[in-house]
Computed example of a mutant assay.
Amino acid sequence: MKEIIAVVRMNMMNRTKQALTDAGVDAFFANEAQGRGKGLVDSKVLEGAGAGYEEAVELLGERGKLYSKRIVTAVVPTEDVDDVVKAIVAANKTGKPGDGKIFVVPVGDAVRVRTGETGAASIV
């Protein structure tokens, strides 16, 4: 089993939900989040702002702000990971900065509380 954590644009959530459903993933979580990618901030300017240089703080302007995102999380069988990741990428790729990020993390075990099922049986 693997956990897929996808950070996507807010306006791409409907496309992402549809892509997950089409890939056979009906159970997932979606949470609101705020963040930014490293490409949107010049690290030298950020260091200067941290050191208290007003010029650096002014240069940050809009580049220092956090952007609204959604974090979508799903646990899927290991053999389905590639298909699910491809579906999320296809639904969210615009070719512009801010398209998102996908993390794939191993899951040691899972338990369905209602039935007590464990492992793969608990996620299907």
Results as ranks from 00 to 15, higher is better:
Gln34Ile: 02
Leu40Ser: 14
Thr73Asn: 05
Glu58Pro: 01
Lys44Arg: 12
Asp80Ile: 00
Gly24Ala: 03
Ile123Val: 07
Met12Val: 07
Leu46Ser: 11
Ile88Cys: 06
Asp80Val: 00
Val76Glu: 07
Val113Ala: 14
Asp82Gln: 13
Glu55Met: 01
Arg36Ile: 03
Arg63Tyr: 07
Tyr67Leu: 14
Gly108Phe: 02
Leu59Gly: 04
Val124Trp: 01
Gly119Pro: 13
Phe103Val: 09
Ile102Val: 15
Gly100Lys: 03
Gly64Glu: 08
Pro106Val: 06
Asp42Arg: 02
Thr78Glu: 14
Tyr53Phe: 15
Asp26Asn: 09
Leu46Tyr: 13
Arg114Tyr: 10
Ala120Ser: 05
Ala56Val: 09
Glu47Val: 09
Arg63Ile: 02
Ala6Asn: 12
Asp82Phe: 02
Glu3Trp: 08
Val107Asn: 10
Gln34Phe: 09
Val84Asp: 13
Val7Phe: 15
Lys44Pro: 14
Ser122Cys: 06
Val72Met: 03
Val104Leu: 09
Leu59Ile: 00
Lys2Thr: 00
Ile71Met: 14
Lys2Ser: 02
Gln18Asn: 08
Val45Arg: 06
Ala121Arg: 12
Asn14Gln: 12
Ser43Arg: 15
Met12Gly: 02
Gly95Val: 02
Ala27Asn: 09
Gly37Ile: 09
Arg112Asn: 15
Lys69Met: 09
Asp42Pro: 03
Gly35Met: 10
Glu3Ser: 10
Val7Gly: 10
Val105Asp: 00
Gly52Ala: 04
Val45His: 07
Lys2Val: 05
Thr78Tyr: 01
Glu54Trp: 05
Val84Pro: 15
Val85Thr: 04
Gly100Arg: 04
Ala33Gly: 11
Gly39Tyr: 12
Glu3Ile: 03
Pro77Arg: 06
Val8Leu: 12
Lys96Gly: 02
Ala51Trp: 00
Gly50Gln: 10
Tyr53Gln: 07
Met12His: 13
Asp26Cys: 04
Ala19Pro: 14
Ala19Thr: 06
Phe103His: 04
Glu54Gln: 12
Ile5Val: 15
Tyr53Lys: 13
Val25Tyr: 00
Gly48Pro: 12
Lys65His: 12
Tyr53Glu: 15
Leu46Thr: 04
Val111Ile: 15
Gly95Gln: 03
Arg36Asp: 07
Pro77Trp: 00
Lys69Ile: 03
Ser68Leu: 06
Ala30Asn: 11
Met10Pro: 09
Val113Cys: 14
Val89Lys: 07
Val105Ile: 15
Ala19Asn: 08
Ser68Cys: 07
Leu66Met: 13
Arg70Gly: 04
Glu79Trp: 00
Ala110Asn: 09
Gly24Trp: 01
Ser122Lys: 03
Val41Trp: 05
Gly64Pro: 11
Met12Tyr: 06
Gly39Asn: 14
Arg63Cys: 02
Asp83Ala: 15
Lys17Ile: 06
Lys2Met: 05
Ile5Phe: 00
Leu46Gly: 10
Val113Lys: 05
Glu62Gly: 09
Lys101Ile: 04
Gly39His: 08
Glu117Leu: 11
Leu60Lys: 12
